[in-house]
Every structure is written in C-alpha cells, then in structure tokens.
Design a protein around this nucleic acid. Structure first.
Lengths: 230, 230
DNA sequence: TTTTTTTTTCATGCTGTATTAAACTTTACT
DNA sequence: AGTAAAGTTTAATACAGCATGAAAAAAAAA
C-alpha cells in the first residue's frame, strides 16, 4: 500500500495542534483528515474507515475515551489503530485509554518527529495484517479469492466464475506455463468434457478485461501468466 | 487463548526492574520469563517464541536495539510484539527504537499500572482474532446473537432463527464470499438436506428486512456481506 | 385444537455466463 | 514460400444460476 492510500484521522479541539501534526504527516505523504471532537470523529471515521486515528483525550462534545469505545465495538474498525494525545501528568488516563482499546499514547507537548516515528511503527503492523493467503498480487494486479474480486490499477471489479478461476490458476503459477490439460482439469474438472476452444475464448475475455500483456500463449502446450515488466 | 498461555519475555539488566514488572505481570496471570541482556534474550526467545517482549534499551553484552533488529529479521517473530523500556530524556532513542521495529516504548521510572495497561492493550489485538464474540457491529448494523436481535439505524427487531443465523454467518465474515456449501453446512447442518433455493429465499428475506445493499451475490459461488460505504 | 409464524418447495422468467461453430490469423515446419 | 496445425476472434445459442411470487409444509404459539 502506498503512503497516500493510508488514511489518517486527526482529532483535536485545538487548531494549533491539528495544524502542526497535519503539516508533518502531510509532508510524509499520508492522506490526513481532521475532526475537532469525538462525535465528528465518529462520523468521519464511518465514511472513511481510517487506518490510524490520532485523537486527543480531552475534547468537548465527546471525549477521546468515549469515541474510542464506540469505535472498538464496531468490527469495521477492527484493524484501525488508535493513538491518543494528552497533557502530561494525567496518569489515570493511561489506564483508561488502554482499557478503552487504544493502541498507543503520546503526551503533550507534541514532538512532531516522535509522532511521525510512532506512526511509521504502528503502520508497520498494519501491513502484516493485510496478508491473506488467498490473495495474489502481481504488479498492479491483485487477485483476491476470498472476495472473488480483481483489482487492476486501483479499480476493483468482479469476474465470472470460470474466468476468475482461470485467472487465479494462471496467476498463481505466474511465469510458468500451464498446460491445457491442466487448465481443463482444474478449472473445468476432469469429468466435464468441453471443447478445446472454450479455454481460448476464456483467455480472450481475460485479455480484454485484465490486459493483453499478462497472457502469453505457448503454442501446443498452454498459457502462461507473465509479469509485464520482468 | 488464556492469560497463562500468553508468553512474555522480560529483558533488563537491573534485577529491581525485572522484579517489580515480573511481579505485576505474574499477578495478572501471564507466563513471564526473564533475561538480563540481549544475547540471553535472543536465546530464550528462540526457545519460547514469546508473544510480547519487554526489553530495556541499555544493556551490557547486546543492547535492546540490536536484539530487536535480530528478532525482526527472523520471520519466527513476525507476530511478536516488542516494547522498549528506557530512561527519560533520551529522545533520540524513540526514533532508533521504532526504526529497529519496536511496537511501543515506555520511559522509566516504571509505573507498574501503566505497564500492565499497555500490555493489555497490545495483547488485545492478539486476542481479538480468536475471541468468539456473540455481538457483531458492522457500521450501523448490530447483530446480537444472545438476544437473536438486530439493530439497524437505531431500530431493533428480531429475526427468525434461520434468517438470523444466515445473517450472523455472513456478517461475521464480512467482505468475504461464503460459499453455498459452507452456508448450508453451518446454517442447516450437514445432515439436513434442503433444496438449494432455500438459501436464496432466506437471503431475500434478509434483503427485505435488513437492506438490499448489504448482500452481494457471487454467482456460482455464494453470497457476501459488504459494508455499503466501502 | 386453531392460529400464526417460520421454513421449505415449486414454477416462472430473466440475466449474464459458458459453450460452440465458423471464419480468420498467426505460427511452425518442410 | 506454401501448407498444416494451432490459436484468435466474433457472433449466435443454450443454459446455469438466481430473483421473485406464491403457496404448501412444518413448527411454534395461542
């Protein structure tokens, strides 16, 4: 995932704090939204599903602890990391914050360097969570068998079953030729008898929808999924 | 996972620090091992694969940063959370620690309450994966298995058993396709033989009652519960 | 029991997918 | 180059798979 695709929600009632942190995170290239209290934060979070929420504890309308509890009860935000900001010396807040489900805690005054460092560390974890065995990524192409969806250059679309399975098969053995008989066996099953042209036609569809360059035909043998740059 | 099955490795060269933290974590019921320098820590970690390592930065033999780098280069410890301890005022260490792959950072002097709180917060993620909650919230939809009730946009209503179980199954795997056979197996049980259309009809009921947008059909495969805003 | 609710089946029509046929193009080989 | 074999492409057709309405069957409630 690219930095600009990482969504951060910054919540504080003090505009100064917002400004300085936003500036530093913008510099790093993150996608930063802001809110000025817990209630607004919840709304924006619903729309946005941020990867990371940096939130002041003390705020009007709804404080950070309460907002955090709300977020933690919604599975939508299971993977959202919540980091709190607070003034020094409110020790009990530590406990309350972590009990509410916070992942991290920073005391004011803010040191931008530290915030950025922490953000990087917290997001490192995010990347690991993303891993899912049924997902193949080749260059800009992501094939997700769990969701039965394909993402190509940022656009997500679904494919008919046979087409999807054919694509998945080829991509999972990328750069290796898959023999026609093998394709037949796996995508169509060994009992079903369909003509040989059927495979061709499905390949054709994939070339249309996904991109010609990915599919190389090896005459007399089968097809090969290739990484276009290599 | 039970608390006593959560392995924590505590690394510090000062016996006093070890003692006070170990005491508090023992109280909480965690399985705590200790080491007094980085080298020893690596050895014990290899044997033990801890879930969490709490480690002093400054130590003889091998310091925490170096140990952390070693650990981070070994995929065995991909899921191990590393938390650093250090004396106050060494700001630069923050950055070094996080760059080495630390997940968290606590400054001495140690406040046991805070350590325990942080430990809980860090381990919450670990647990979440396994906890079998019987209340799911996805966006504005709350599904309560204990009450067999659903709350949607503030309105609460109950659903017939099969409908509820189907909804629960799909929502608990939201964004993932659940195959028809899987649905059949879980909602109806492997012995019962009912027609394939039965599933369709129940989906229809859910679409009527809960909202069309949540349910996506994946032809030839099954159904998928989607978060509408995404 | 009767009544109501829930679950399942069935029939129909529609949509998009899978398949085949056929004409055309490329590749491999003599 | 000439020819056969293999693959591509287009279009036409068959049909799987599902939504839908209605209604029977089963289970629960009254």
């Amino acid at each position: 995932m690219k930095k600009k695709d990482i969504r951060i929600l910054l919540v504080d009632d003090e505009p100064d704090v917002i400004e300085i942190i936003k500036y530093n995170l913008d510099q790093e290239g993150y996608n930063v939204k802001t809110a000025s209290n817990g209630k607004e934060a919840l709304k924006k979070a619903q729309k946005n599903t941020p990867h990371l929420i940096i939130m002041d504890v003390m705020m009007p309308e709804m404080d950070g602890i309460e907002a955090c509890e709300h977020l933690r009860s919604d599975t939508t935000f299971n993977d959202t990391i919540i980091m709190f900001l607070t003034a020094r010396g409110e020790d009990y807040s530590y406990v309350a914050a972590f009990d509410a489900g916070a992942d991290d805690y920073v005391t004011k005054p803010i040191k931008p360097k530290i915030i950025v460092s922490k953000v990087k560390a917290l997001l490192r974890r995010l990347k690991k969570v993303e891993v899912n065995q049924d997902k193949i990524q080749v260059g800009k192409l992501i094939i997700d068998k769990e969701q039965y969806e394909v993402t190509h250059k940022g656009k997500t679309f679904s494919l008919p079953r046979k087409e999807f399975e054919l694509l998945y098969l080829l991509a999972s053995k990328s750069d290796k030729v898959v023999k026609r008989e093998k394709i037949m066996e796996i995508v169509w099953g060994s009992e079903v008898v369909v003509g040989d042209r059927t495979i061709d036609v499905h390949i054709r569809k994939l070339r249309e929808k996904v991109g010609d360059k990915y599919f190389k035909t090896v005459k007399g043998v089968g097809y090969k999924f290739v990484k276009p740059f290599k």
